[in-house]
């Protein structure tokens, strides 16, 4: 806030300075309304679960979509030569499996049973081609159990599944 050493208000040049605030308020109210009733409502579904995507049938194929679920334990295959990463995503109850193919090393928290959100397209060949892999962390923060090396889990997962 710059202290305007303006002479005391006389009320003369007021009309002109009102345009900006009115615009600002209109934009703000508009944005707010859009947030509550419009935009977010449509985009409320930030990602589809595997079952929801499968239920869409061909309608859900070959369109940009976000898929969210859990990495099915034991399905991660990592090829450190081609940098191909393959794994299956399932709903939290373990149903509705979708095969996912991704390129490049995943974020460090990626591991069996972890929540993930992948952006990409579900192909007609029933393979989800991921262009962006994101790890969804839970709200739990735990100290490692005795003898557990936290960051080793990621490395062993990456190594153990190497072809």
């Amino acid at each position: 806030m710059t202290a305007p050493m303006t002479p005391p208000e006389t009320g003369a040049p007021r009309k002109r300075s009102l345009v900006l605030p009115i615009t600002a308020v209109v934009v703000l109210v508009g944005a707010f309304g859009w947030l509550i009733w419009g935009g977010l409502d449509k985009n409320v579904v930030f990602f589809l679960t595997p079952n929801e995507l499968l239920a869409k049938g061909t309608g859900g194929m070959n369109v940009p979509v976000r898929l969210g679920g859990q990495v099915k334990p034991g399905t991660v295959k990592w090829d450190d030569k081609t940098l191909d990463l393959r794994f299956d995503v399932v709903d939290t109850n373990g149903t509705g499996m979708i095969h996912v193919k991704s390129k490049g090393a995943p974020p460090q928290m990626f591991r069996d049973g972890m929540g993930v959100v992948v952006e990409g397209r579900f192909g007609a060949d029933s393979l989800f081609q991921s262009s962006q892999l994101m790890v969804k962390h839970s709200n739990e923060y735990r100290a490692p159990k005795a003898g557990e090396k936290p960051q080793e889990m990621y490395k062993s997962l990456m190594k153990g599944s190497g072809q």
């Binding site: 600002a24 934009v27 703000l28 707010f32 977010l40 985009n43 974020p107 959100v117 962006q132 790890v135």
Partner: peptide, 26 residues
């Protein structure tokens, strides 16, 4: 960036926080 793998994503929490920021910047 290190935990999720992305700097930013347009999910409802991040988007609504940005809107909050913009309203008060306004």
């Amino acid at each position: 960036r290190p935990a999720w793998g992305v700097w930013w994503v347009w999910d409802p929490r991040l988007t609504s926080t940005l809107v909050l920021f913009l309203i008060f910047a306004g």
